[in-house]
Each structure stands twice: as structure tokens, then as C-alpha cells.
Nucleic acid binder design. Structure first.
Length: 551
RNA sequence: GGUGGGUUCGUAUAACGGUUAGUACUCAAGAUUUUCAUUCUUGCAAUAGGGGUUCGAUUCCCCUACCCACUACCA
């Protein structure tokens, strides 16, 4: 019978989730969904020293933002999420709440000769290490050294049984076998062999905390939660032999999960793995969401920086995996269908912030005008603009709207006015916030003019022609008193014909007009601008430029 | 130091042992446009080095170099 696919993402709540962690979670999620299985979030909080309040909530929220929703685990409020299971319940999903189940497993290992009690204190161990280091040797707690340490292998039984009662902080250590080659298979890296002589007797259980360490808790929980594949970061590869041996010692090798170790995310330049400092230095986020630590230090997040979660996820998915063809744009469903561990890259992937921006740009243009308008409105409001849902509401707000829906004096605009602009500028932006930089002149009349552009374009022989062209535009719709017919289509053709038929230089005339209308020499087509801001504002801006720049 | 993993344009990556080593991002140039942006076209640019195996190696093996991880009573 085919085994049900069950994978887990097991973060430690010691801080915000790094984007590399998000990628690990994503690959787990994609794998689970592709196989119609379960994606489980298990919180590995066995280290009370490093526990950070809020970290768990952050992790859940970050995954949530990315669309990575667990079938089992805890939600952002801390409630248990469970898949109805006929097998047996897997909750709770926080290791701190599972502490009662680990000790028996550790004891079982001791009874069967796979582990032993050790009474060396951290001070003693540190001293021993320093000693060895002085001789330029490395201290390894293994079959060579363990017989010279204080443990249940070297002490008489009566003595160590007594110590169990009196010695407050003993541990249970795994008895790493001598000179054995552990043969392992990794779904991404293939066959790996390691000799146990290079490994040490890892601590599995700590009396002082009444808690297991990662290795024990991890194996026991993966077994109990019926995990079929463990997809995790490369930093765990060196402990894979221990994990194999642990499954063997428990007699669980038949249901041992298959393993896949993902490479790390590397910094965009130089050496080493991607860290928060790189983000600060190079100006990009390394965390999905903004995070403020206990010292009040702020780390930016992809969400707050204006990235779409789809873009972030897509970018992350392609960092270390590809579908085998040239496709680069994938929805979550597309990723679920196309993903395969076989195509995950073994080597570390350097993160490229430019590519991340490119992804956002691509996703931005797939959004509807309405969606983008919704997102742009808060940006406008942050710049002191007011957006109303209809012209009537504007009147209630005391506005005097142009036929296009703008009141430049009071900075009140209709949603329709905003949406119009969004549709014209969305191809020019990477982020929604860019809309303001690109189009602020469509909301606020220019109060100054870019010096460079003035020097370049504002010459009498040109602006005199521009004023005539402006005058022409003002007059050709003289019959239409409402000004409502002041559309791009009505303006563009006649204006160009007028300039051309006079034999004037199109570029120079247009740029003078653009300078007058936007305050600079970049922006939309003149006809677009005029049709958007409307006749009155058009006239007002021409007058202001005349006054300001001298004509 | 030891152990394990890795190495194709600057970056992400593609290439049944046989390709002019492909694509995307970045960058540059050109075209279009009334400017900017967009768009389009073109260009720059790679198999870490050395040995094998083979008719033939980016691909398989070995060595070297370099990079990464691990080497805690942290995960």
C-alpha cells in the first residue's frame, strides 16, 4: 500500500523566519500538495534559552502571507489545526507541549544499549576541550573518550543509579557505534556514506530542562507524526547519519522517512550565506514580513516593501529549482504541478535582488486596474490626497470636481480618476508605491521645475510655439462648454496636425508643454496628461509656467 | 584541523556522452515614441585547473584549488 505523503516544516521560534526558511517551507508545501498529502507545521521550541516571544506568530503569519497554509499545526492565534485522521491524533504540534512523551524513548535507548547516562558537567566538558585544544587536538565525545568520562558505562551501577537521583543535570547520550559506515540516500544528493568514527555521542536528553534535544525530539516526532519525507536545509546533512542510526535503534527503519537536503541561499555578492546584514547593506529585505526585535531594531519585510506574495513565492521557488524548460512565471498551483525534488539544484543559490524586482514587475502588470487602484489609494492618502468613490461623494466632501473627477485645489479625486491613471502607468512600475513617483503630477500641480530640463528645453523659440499649441488646444473644443469632451482622442490628432502643419519641431514643442505640465521632462504623452487633468487645470499650469519660468 | 556537500556567462539556470553550450535577470547598443518608461531587435559574457576513461566529456572517474555546512547539554 502506498504511504500517505506527510511532510513537515519544523521551525524554531528563535526569531523571524529567514527567506531561506520560507523556501524550505515552500518546497515542503509544494511536495505535499503535489502528492495529495499533508503539510504540517511543528514548532521546535525545546530550547527555552533562545525562545523569542512573537516569533512563532511571525512564522505562521509569514507563511500565511505566502499562501503556505498548514493542514496540521498551529495557526496565527495559536490554535491547533488538524487533519481528520483515522490513524491517530498527531497534536500537539509544539514540542514544548509534547515533553512528556520523549523521556520514555530516551530511556528505551539506554535499556537497549544504544545510549547511556552521562554526568559530566558543561564545565568539565569545556575544560576537557580546552585541554585537548592546547595539544592541538579536537575533543570528540565518542568511543575513544567516553570510557574516560563520568557516565553509566564507566561508573559502577550503584553509583550511577545514585547519581541519577542526586546529580541535577545529567544527560542521555547516544552511543555512537565504532567504525561503522552508515549508508544513506538523499532525494537530492544521492548516495552518501559516512564512517561513525568521525561522529560524536550526541546528547539526546537533558535532565536539567526535562527536555530532549533536537535530534531525539525530531526523530520521535517525525515517527509519531508519520512523516514520509523530510525536506530540510543543508545544515542538517552532517547529522543525517545520527538520524539514520536513531531510526535503526528504535527499530523504525521500515517507516523511516526519505530525506532531501536543500542547499543554502547565498549572499548576492562575496562569500557566505545570505544574512540580514546583506539586506541592510545592499538594500533588500531578507525576511518575508517586517520584524522589530526586542531592542527595537527594525528589519524590513518583502510585504512591507511592496512585493506581491505571488512574486515573492515565485522568485523563491526558482532559486534552486527549475521546471526543466524556459518557463519562469508560475502561480502556486502551477508550482504544485511542476515541482519535483529531482530538479532541485544541489549547489547553493546566490540571491539576486534584481530578479526579485523583475518578478514583482511581472506580477504587477497582471493585476487588474481595480485591484491596483485599491492598493494605490492608501499610497495617495499617505501623500495627503483624498479619494472618493463617486462624484456625488465628492460634492458632499466639498469638492469642485473637473469633468474628469479631480479637484486639484482640495486634492480630492474620484476613484474613477485614479483608476484611469493606474491603467496608463502600471507598465512603468515595479511596485504600487512607484505609482506616486511616476504620476504625482496628475494629483498635485507642479510648484517648481527641474533645472536641468528647463536648461535643456525652455528656450524662447520653443516655448513660444508651445504656448501657441496650448492656445490651439484650449480653443478647438470651444463649442463644448462642459469640457467633458476633452479626451485624449480629441486632442491628440488635431494637436499634432497643428504643430506639424506649422512645420514646428514636434519634440521641442511637446517637451516645453511637458515641462510646464509636469515640472520635468518625463511622463506620459501630452494628450494623455491634458485629457486627465482637464481643461482648467491645463490652462492653470500653462499660466503658472509662464509666470514662474518667464515667457 | 576533521567530516560531509558543492563548482556552466556577473547572477539564476538549460543541455540521453555528440548543440554554433540555450534561456532569463543585469548591463550596453540600436529601433519605435513628443520626453521618460514600455515594447522590439542586437550585443557582451560561462563549462575552476590538471589528469584519466572514451572515436568523442559540461556530462563518468581521480587529484588539486576554491566555496559552503557541520564539528554545543542550539536548532
Amino acid at each position: 500500500m502506498e504511504r500517505r505523503t506527510r511532510v513537515r516544516f519544523a521551525p524554531s521560534p528563535t526569531g523571524p523566519l529567514h527567506m531561506g526558511g520560507v523556501r524550505t517551507a515552500l518546497y515542503n508545501y509544494l511536495y505535499a500538495k503535489q502528492h495529495g498529502g499533508d503539510f504540517i507545521i511543528r514548532i521546535e521550541d525545546t530550547d527555552s534559552q533562545r525562545f523569542v516571544p512573537g516569533a512563532e506568530k511571525y512564522i505562521i503569519e509569514a507563511l500565511n502571507w505566502c499562501g503556505i497554509i498548514p493542514d496540521e499545526g498551529v495557526d496565527a492565534e495559536g490554535n491547533v489545526v488538524e487533519t481528520p485522521s483515522e490513524r491517530h491524533p498527531h497534536a500537539p504540534y509544539r514540542q514544548s507541549q509534547r515533553r512528556s512523551i520523549y523521556r520514555q524513548y530516551a530511556e528505551e535507548l539506554v535499556q537497549n544499549g544504544f545510549a547511556y547516562y552521562a554526568f559530566d558537567t558543561s564545565e568539565e566538558l569545556a575544560a576537557r576541550r580546552a585541554e585537548m585544544e592546547a595539544e592541538k587536538k579536537t575533543f570528540i565525545y565518542n568511543h575513544i573518550t567516553r570510557m574516560s568520562m563520568r557516565n553509566s558505562l564507566t561508573l559502577p551501577e550503584s553509583e550511577w543509579r545514585q547519581l541519577l537521583e542526586t546529580h541535577g543535570d545529567w544527560t542521555i547520550r547516544f552511543k555512537m557505534p565504532e567504525d561503522r559506515t552508515v549508508k544513506m540516500d538523499d532525494l537530492i544528493r544521492g548516495h552518501i556514506e559516512v564512517n561513525t568514527d568521525t561522529l560524536d555521542d550526541k546528547v539526546l536528553w537533558k535532565k536539567a530542562d526535562e527536555l530532549p534535544t533536537y535530534h531525539l525530539a525530531n526523530i520521535v516526532d517525525d515517527h509519531l507524526m508519520e512523516i514520509s519525507e523530510v525536506i530540510r536545509g543543508e545544515e542538517w546533512l552532517p547529522s543525517l547519519p545520527l538520524h539514520y542510526l536513531l531510526y535503526e535503534a528504535f527499530g523504525w527503519q521500515d517507516t523511516m522517512p526519505r530525506f532531501a537536503h536543500l542547499s543554502l541561499l547565498l549572499k548576492p555578492d562575496g562569500k557566505g550565506k545570505l544574512s540580514k546584514r546583506d539586506g541592510d547593506r545592499l538594500g533588500f529585505p531578507v525576511f518575508p514580513l517586517k520584524w522589530v526585535n526586542q531592542e527595537g531594531e527594525v528589519s524590513r519585510g518583502y510585504r512591507e516593501d511592496g512585493y506581491f506574495p505571488e512574486a515573492f513565492v515565485n522568485m523563491l521557488a526558482m532559486l534552486g529549482w527549475n521546471p526543466g524548460d524556459d518557463r519562469e512565471l508560475f502561480t502556486m498551483d502551477g508550482l504544485i504541478e511542476a515541482f519535483s525534488l529531482e530538479r532541485v539544484i544541489k549547489s547553493g543559490a546566490r540571491f539576486n535582488p534584481d530578479k526579485a524586482r523583475w518578478y514583482n514587475k511581472e506580477y504587477l502588470r497582471t493585476k487588474s486596474d481595480d485591484e491596483l487602484t485599491d492598493l494605490f489609494i492608501p499610497v495617495l492618502e499617505s501623500h495627503g490626497m483624498q479619494v472618493v468613490s463617486c462624484p456625488k461623494c465628492a460634492i458632499t466632501a466639498g469638492a469642485e470636481l473637473t469633468p474628469q473627477g479631480a479637484d486639484f485645489r482640495n486634492h480630492i479625486f474620484t476613484r474613477e480618476y485614479v483608476r484611469n491613471i493606474v491603467s496608463l502607468i502600471k507598465e512603468r512600475a515595479v511596485f504600487v508605491a512607484d505609482f506616486w513617483d511616476i504620476a504625482s503630477y496628475l494629483f498635485v500641480s507642479p510648484s517648481s521645475f527641474a533645472e536641468k530640463d528647463v536648461a535643456k528645453f525652455w528656450k524662447e523659440e520653443n516655448y513660444s510655439l508651445a504656448f501657441q499649441a496650448a492656445g490651439f488646444v484650449m480653443n478647438f473644443d470651444a463649442g463644448d462648454k462642459t469640457g467633458a469632451g476633452f479626451t485624449k482622442e480629441q486632442i491628440e490628432g488635431p494637436m499634432e496636425d497643428f504643430i506639424r502643419s506649422n512645420g514646428w519641431p514636434m519634440g521641442k514643442v511637446m517637451n516645453c508643454l511637458r515641462l510646464a505640465l509636469t515640472g520635468a521632462s518625463s511622463g506620459l504623452g501630452i494628450a494623455d496628461i491634458i485629457s486627465i487633468i482637464g481643461k482648467n487645470e491645463f490652462a492653470a499650469r500653462i499660466d503658472f509656467a509662464k509666470k514662474e519660468l518667464g515667457a
